[in-house]
Design a protein around this nucleic acid. Structure first.
Lengths: 227, 227
DNA sequence: GCGACTTTGTTCCTGCGTTCACAAGCGGTT
DNA sequence: AACCGCTTGTGAACGCAGGAACAAAGTCGC
């Protein structure tokens, strides 16, 4: 009953945004919100927001709006946040260290239970209260903690082998920051976050909008990082 | 002639992926590729790939496939990579420092020309050959370099003011890593990269697939970050 | 107690993205 | 020179997401 047959993936992504906005409203002491206000804060269309929320069954009061705390708890339940999720992070470079030290995950129910790196220089360091372990211990930690989410922040060359090991160890969801397209066995979800792609889309939109060829790189940049 | 009336945004994102794959193939000495092989490497449908490529006009040889270097250059041209793009980065925390030090941008035509942070402790540090400047100099650097892309890696509270200043200074494209929904004036594109949302979508897909309640956080994690 | 206003939940419709399937074209071979 | 297999490019159908408009329902005021 709480789990409808299917919720579109795009809706799930927006539900996570609504949840963040609602949490902020609740912390501010707000009791109720209308769909229009919530949609404005989330940057979406009010009708679309109501349609998204309709997937969880009726949870608002007509003429009044939505009760902030109730809606927050309802969304959190649908997204599966009442149970914490154990994550392992492979690749403790600049980006990996930033992810490991970012506190925004823990407060949302995601807990890193293992950090791994291939470099002996990194192994043994403490980041966010957790030691960096050698990748050889990956399977053991996944088995011991029952981690279901793996985050890959390694160089591109080793991302696929790491993905294979994570999947074999029992991880069912993988978030990949390496700039390669991973192939994983059926039953394992992979989501790709590619920063270069995001920038290139922005650059294209800018170019398509016409004009503005006047980029003067030489004005302040000393050395071109051409590789 | 080179710029067709409109290319769908989803296609642009995939073109960037094709470009990455093609670059790798060219470095490996490969001369030609078929749509099937390229689609497999990019993780998409072969027919969809051909339709994406059709937006740049005919660029393949029937019976043979696509010439790797030619297609690579064609895509690079459409994405506007023959001209470098100057970027400014605001917020040099863990994530910002990782972005500033990441070499993957420079090789794709994106060059950081200014790093900014509000903390005096950060100002003056050198990251990737560039000094961290106080945010007060933001407008001057944008004007001097003609930067068109701004990257926000600040705490959530100050992301909107920073966005406003970037837009007012003339930046037309903004990539936001702060967990807030930004509102920008018309003519300014904002792309949101929210790591928590990605994780929550993964968690939901995992939950929806059924089963797996056996998350044992207490095995290794010390404290549950319930808020 | 009744009316009017506000807001939700739903339905319809339009447009887009994706996928399947087929015709057109090129290279290699005999 | 003609045939055959292979691959591209395109046209059509399907499904889905997004947006607007409408009906139901609850609350506030009189």
């Amino acid at each position: 009953m709480q789990s409808r047959p299917r919720i579109p993936e795009a809706t799930v992504a927006r539900l996570a945004v609504y949840l963040r906005v609602l949490t902020g409203l609740a912390d501010g002491g707000r009791r109720t919100v209308s769909s229009g206000e919530l949609a404005s804060a989330a940057g979406v269309n009010p009708a679309g927001l109501r349609k998204d929320l309709s997937h969880l069954g009726p949870c608002g009061t007509r003429g009044v709006g939505y009760e902030v705390s109730t809606l927050r708890d309802r969304i959190a339940g649908v997204l599966g946040m009442e149970t914490a999720h154990a994550c392992v992070l492979v690749g403790i470079g600049n980006l990996g260290a930033a992810l490991a030290g970012y506190g925004g995950f823990g407060s949302r129910g995601f807990e890193f239970v293992g950090l791994f790196d291939a470099s002996p220089a990194r192994v043994g360091q403490q980041i966010g209260g957790l030691p960096v372990r050698p990748v050889a211990e990956l399977e053991d930690v996944v088995a011991a903690t029952g981690a279901t989410i793996g985050v890959i922040a390694t160089p591109a060359e080793v991302a696929q082998p790491v993905c294979d090991r994570l999947a074999a160890a029992g991880v069912r969801s993988i978030l990949n920051f390496a700039p390669v397209t991973l192939s994983a066995p059926a039953g394992v979800d992979v989501r790709q976050v590619d920063l270069s792609v995001e920038l290139q889309v922005l650059a294209f939109l800018d170019k398509q909008r016409g004009a503005v060829p006047g980029v003067r790189l030489d004005a302040l940049a000393p050395a071109g990082g051409m590789a």
